[in-house]
Design a protein around this nucleic acid. Structure first.
Lengths: 226, 226
DNA sequence: GTCTATATTCAGATAGAC
DNA sequence: GTCTATCTGAATATAGAC
C-alpha cells in the first residue's frame, strides 16, 4: 500500500495546526505553510480544495473525537443518574475537562490543538465562526439542557450567559499560556509560561465552578435607573 | 481655525475602530477603511505613518482615559482605606466596571470600542500583543498588588491565573455579544444579542467574583499521579 | 494636507507537463 | 499525486503634482 497520500495530507494538517495557532488564519500564508510541511505549494489545493477547506479539515480531525467524547460522557452520566439531574461539577468537568485532556495526549493534537482552539474561537472571519458554531451546536445544546436540569433555580438566560463566560475563561487560560501575556509578571513566568494540561485543569476548574454557582445578579431592567 | 486635520484624523480613527472590531486587524484593508472614512487612501500614511501606527493610535485614544481612570479609582480607594486591604469586589468592580462603563458612553467609544478590546486581546500579530502588554503593564501590576493584599490566603500565582481567567470571561462576554455565537440559542437571541453595557455588567460581575473567590485547588504537583 | 498614479510585494489559486 | 510556472487580484506604501 502506498500511504504517500496520507503522509502529505497529515503533514499539511500538522503544519496548519501549528501555524494557524501561532499566526492565526489570515496571518498564515500557503507558501509558508507548504514550506514548513515540506510539500508542494499546489498540494493544499489538490487535497483540501482551498485554504478554507484546509482550516475545516484541521478542526474536523480533532473535533470528531472531542465532541463525540463529550456526548458519550454525557449519555453515560445521564444513564447512570437514571432520571435524576446531574451535578453541575460533573457537567463542567465533562465539557471542559475533556478538552483539557486533549492537551495531554499528543495523538489528539496536544497543547498545540488546545492553543489553536483557544485562539480560533475569536477569529473574526465569518466563515470560521459559522463553521465552529455549526460543529458545536449539538454538543452545546445537550450540555445547556443538562445545566438547566442541574440548576433549576437559575434562569435559562443566565445559564447561557455563564456558559459563554466559562468558554471565555477557558479560552484565555489556554491562549494565555503562550500568546497573550497581559497579566504576565514573575508569577506566571518560566515554569508556568507553558503549564501542563493537568495544571491548567486543576486551576481552571474551581474558577469555572465558582463562577457558574455564583449568587444571581439582581436584575433591575436593562436601562439604568434614570 | 482650521480643523480639517482633526476631522480627517478622527474620521480615520472612527472607521478603524469599527472595522478592526468587525473584521480584525489583518482582515481590514486600508482601501476599505479610507473609503468608509471618506478620506484619501494616502491620508492614513500621512497621519499615522503606517497601518501599525493607526492601530496604536486607535487604542491610545481610548486607553489613556480607561487606564487613567482605573489608576485614579484605585488610588482613591486606597487613600480612603487608610492602609487596610481593599475588598476583592471593590477591586474587580473598579477594574472591569470601568471598562464596561465605557460601553455606555458614546464619547468614549461605546460598545464599538468594548467589542474591539474584547477581540483584539487575542489578535495573533506579535506587535499587537506587545503593544497592549506595555500599555497595560502599569495598571495590571497595581491591581494585582491590590488583590494580593485583599486575598492574603491565596498565592500570588493563583491570583495571577485568576486575573487571566477574569480577563477571558470578560473578553468573551463582550465579543460574544455580536461575534462569536457558539453558545447561541433562543436564550441569547434578539433581545440579548446586543445587550446594553449595563446588562453585561450586571451579569458578568457576579460570575467574576464567584470565580475569584472559589475554593483553592488542591495542588498535587504537575505530573498526573501515574 | 490632499490627491492621483504607481511601485512593490505577496496572496490564493490553477493549467498542464510528468 | 506531484511538480513548475504562472494567472489574477489585492495588499501596503510612497513619489510627486497641486
Amino acid at each position: 500500500m502506498n500511504d504517500t497520500i496520507n503522509d502529505t495530507r497529515e503533514r499539511i494538517l500538522d503544519a496548519a495546526e501549528r501555524l494557524f495557532m501561532a499566526h492565526g488564519y489570515e496571518g498564515t500564508s500557503m507558501r509558508l505553510l507548504t514550506t514548513e510541511a515540506a510539500v508542494n505549494l499546489a498540494a493544499v489545493n489538490y487535497h483540501f480544495g482551498s485554504k478554507e477547506g484546509l482550516l475545516q479539515a484541521v478542526f474536523r480531525r480533532r473535533l470528531v473525537w472531542l465532541n463525540g467524547e463529550r456526548l458519550r460522557l454525557l449519555n453515560e452520566m445521564e444513564a447512570k443518574a437514571n432520571g435524576a439531574p446531574l451535578r453541575p461539577s460533573q457537567i463542567v468537568e465533562a465539557f471542559f475537562g475533556t478538552l483539557l485532556t486533549m492537551g495531554e495526549r499528543e495523538e489528539l493534537g496536544g497543547m498545540t490543538f488546545l492553543r489553536l482552539i483557544g485562539r480560533t474561537l475569536t477569529e473574526p472571519a465569518d466563515f470560521i465562526r459559522a463553521f465552529l458554531a455549526s460543529e458545536y451546536s449539538e454538543v452545546v445544546d445537550r450540555y445547556k439542557a443538562a445545566l438547566y436540569r442541574a440548576l433549576p433555580e437559575v434562569t435559562r438566560e443566565e445559564i447561557a450567559w455563564r456558559f459563554q463566560f466559562m468558554l471565555g475563561a477557558m479560552s484565555y487560560a489556554i491562549a494565555g499560556t503562550d500568546a497573550l501575556r497581559i497579566v504576565g509578571g514573575p508569577e506566571l513566568a518560566s515554569d508556568t509560561a507553558h503549564p501542563t494540561a493537568h495544571e491548567l485543569k486543576v486551576r481552571l476548574m474551581p474558577f469555572l465552578l465558582g463562577g457558574l454557582r455564583a449568587p444571581l445578579p439582581e436584575m433591575d431592567g436593562k436601562a439604568s435607573p434614570h
